[in-house]
Design a protein around this nucleic acid. Structure first.
Length: 551
DNA sequence: CTAGGGTTAG
């Protein structure tokens, strides 16, 4: 039989998104007995995996007696991609026992699977295996290890792997920069970037994405602008990934005009980019513009997804505009998005924040599938309207259903106690959260507790709660205590708290002014003057910024 | 010949 090889190879190299077509190709290969060949088997396994037919992929693997490393690797990757972690690992174990030895790519697949599954002890064991196999300095394995450790919040471990490599390639540099960006260690990311440039490596779109990821949290707009400039010069700002990050970076700094300019320069803005801009406008308080863009997107051929609808509803909740909320509710109904838990929870939240708790409860009642988020929204709604007992009733119902409460559940309950002034119940639920449900109290929980205790005259207890926390105490918690002190006229405690706030945030002038006001209220002009004299310090010196000026 | 290490918003 004459086989049109050219046709076959181009078909196999295409990323075919139709399962039917893949099955036809597979059937054709079976007829020609080419499916016995590990080369073709690998292709078919990959095509089945892309179309998420993992059983057919496994079947092809089983039927192929002559298994190449490529075939093993593809099968392991296929299992990992379809979240079948256990299968991926056991396939790897089988491979170790077979008469073929895994290569760097095999280990990379397994390492990635461990990270995706947040399995630290397995990652450790595989890392050991990598070293034992003599692949400890293999660039592919090292990149995978750096990414995996960063994903498990062990960036320092990632750095150790990186340091072992004498001449890191671009991917390895990028992996570490991404690790730093994702862990909020943006200054270390910048340092690595400077070091990378010193050895003459040119950044690509991954490098910029890694850097930009951390910058929005840094609070230093000039660095973000420097990176924007750099991406323009390297012609990377029209890349939709980099563009999306720039849009959200500018949005977080509330520079929506710049965000819009970046948006316009992107060649093919995708749903992510649109989302970043729409959410950006609403985060900057420009709700009308945000909604106008939402409807504009809707007029184009791309349709908003449930995540975007939920975010738009969140900004409508902030506007407390129930008319717009109803319009978007109608939109969700027309597009069958109201069954999505994220959308319906956002609807509950929107209605209750607009003052229409009853409508929120209606949405809750007709929901098909209720998860923890839906219960949290309805609990928050009851609390917001002062119905603390209803909130607790919902909480108990949720427990009866076997749902496990999370941090947000307790935030909602504590805020319900705040709104109703239920000090005793608040203390009790705070205790149960920690002891019974093993949830570590987060800053927002402490904020509620401080408000609750402070507003009922138990300032001392609120203060001792704060003193039990490790330094530095979150500024939201101290801020809550400070406003309680102010409203009940306890200027002595107010001063202590303001000093603590100022000491931990010396660069933020808000706290300097706060403290200054307290001194001024007591007529202590010398203290006011001292405070002002220290103000000449200027901006904190930033590490490794010279490259911005040079670029 | 193929697979295989590094992405983004909410």
């Amino acid at each position: 039989m004459l086989i049109p090889f050219e046709w076959l190879h181009s078909e196999l190299s295409n990323i075919c998104r139709s399962l039917l077509r893949v099955k036809q190709l597979h059937a054709f290969l079976l007829k020609t007995h080419l499916s016995e060949d590990p080369f073709y088997a690998t292709k078919i396994v990959r095509l089945y995996a892309i179309n998420s037919d993992i059983n057919s992929a496994h079947n092809v693997f089983d039927k192929t007696s002559n298994r190449s490393v490529y075939l093993w690797n593809s099968m392991i990757r296929a299992f990992a991609q379809s979240q079948r972690f256990f299968n991926a690992i056991s396939m790897f174990r089988t491979m170790l026992g077979a008469d073929i030895s895994p290569d760097g790519h095999t280990y990379a697949c397994v390492i990635r699977a461990c990270a995706d599954n947040f399995d630290f002890s397995m990652l450790r064991r595989v890392h050991g295996g990598v070293v034992a196999a003599g692949l400890g300095l293999d660039p592919v394995c090292c990149s995978a290890l750096v990414t995996a450790y960063s994903k498990l919040d062990l960036v320092h471990e990632a750095r150790r792997v990186f340091n072992g490599v004498t001449e890191p390639d671009l991917v390895l540099w990028n992996s570490l920069i991404f690790g730093y960006g994702g862990s909020g260690l943006w200054d270390l990311g910048i340092q690595m970037f400077s070091a990378m440039r010193l050895v003459g490596k040119k950044p690509d779109e991954y490098t910029l994405a890694g850097l930009l990821m951390g910058i929005a949290d840094s609070g230093v707009l000039s660095i973000g602008q420097g990176l924007h400039c750099l991406s323009q010069k390297s012609g990377l700002d029209s890349d939709s990934h980099v563009g999306s990050l720039l849009v959200s970076m500018y949005s977080r700094f509330k520079c929506v005009a710049s965000a819009y300019r970046v948006f316009c320069s992107i060649l093919n803005p995708d749903l992510v980019t649109w989302s970043a801009l729409i959410v950006g406008y609403s985060q900057s308080g420009e709700y009308e513009m945000s909604l106008r863009l939402f409807w504009k997107l809707n007029r184009e051929d791309r349709k908003p997804d449930s995540v975007l609808v939920a975010s738009v509803l969140a900004s409508i909740a902030q506007m407390a505009n129930v008319g717009l909320g109803c319009e978007v509710h109608g939109f969700a109904l027309r597009h069958g998005l109201e069954l999505d838990v994220r959308v319906s929870s956002a609807l509950i939240d929107m209605y209750s924040k607009c003052g229409f708790l009853q409508l929120g409860i209606c949405v809750f009642r007709i929901m098909q599938e209720r998860n923890i988020v839906s219960y949290n929204s309805v609990i928050l709604g009851f609390g917001l309207h002062g119905y603390a007992s209803e909130a607790f009733r919902m909480f108990n119902k949720m427990l009866e259903k076997g749902l496990v409460p999370d941090e947000a559940t307790f935030s909602s309950l504590l805020s319900a106690c705040c709104h109703a002034g239920l000090v005793k119940d608040g203390k009790e639920i705070f205790r149960r959260m920690k002891e019974e449900f093993n949830i570590r109290a987060r800053p927002e929980h402490y904020v509620s507790m401080v408000k609750l205790l402070g507003s009922s005259g138990e300032l001392e207890e609120a203060y001792s709660l704060i003193r039990s926390l490790p330094e530095p105490v979150d500024k939201a918690i101290l801020g809550a205590l400070l406003s309680c002190c102010n409203s009940c006229g306890n200027s002595e405690l107010a001063e202590a708290v303001a000093q603590q706030l100022f000491a931990s945030n010396p660069a933020d002038n808000v706290y300097r002014v706060m403290l200054s006001n307290i001194y001024a209220g007591d007529g202590r002009w010398n203290d006011v003057k001292n405070l002002r004299d220290k103000m000449t310090g200027g901006l904190r010196k930033m590490p490794g910024l010279s490259w911005i000026e040079s670029s």
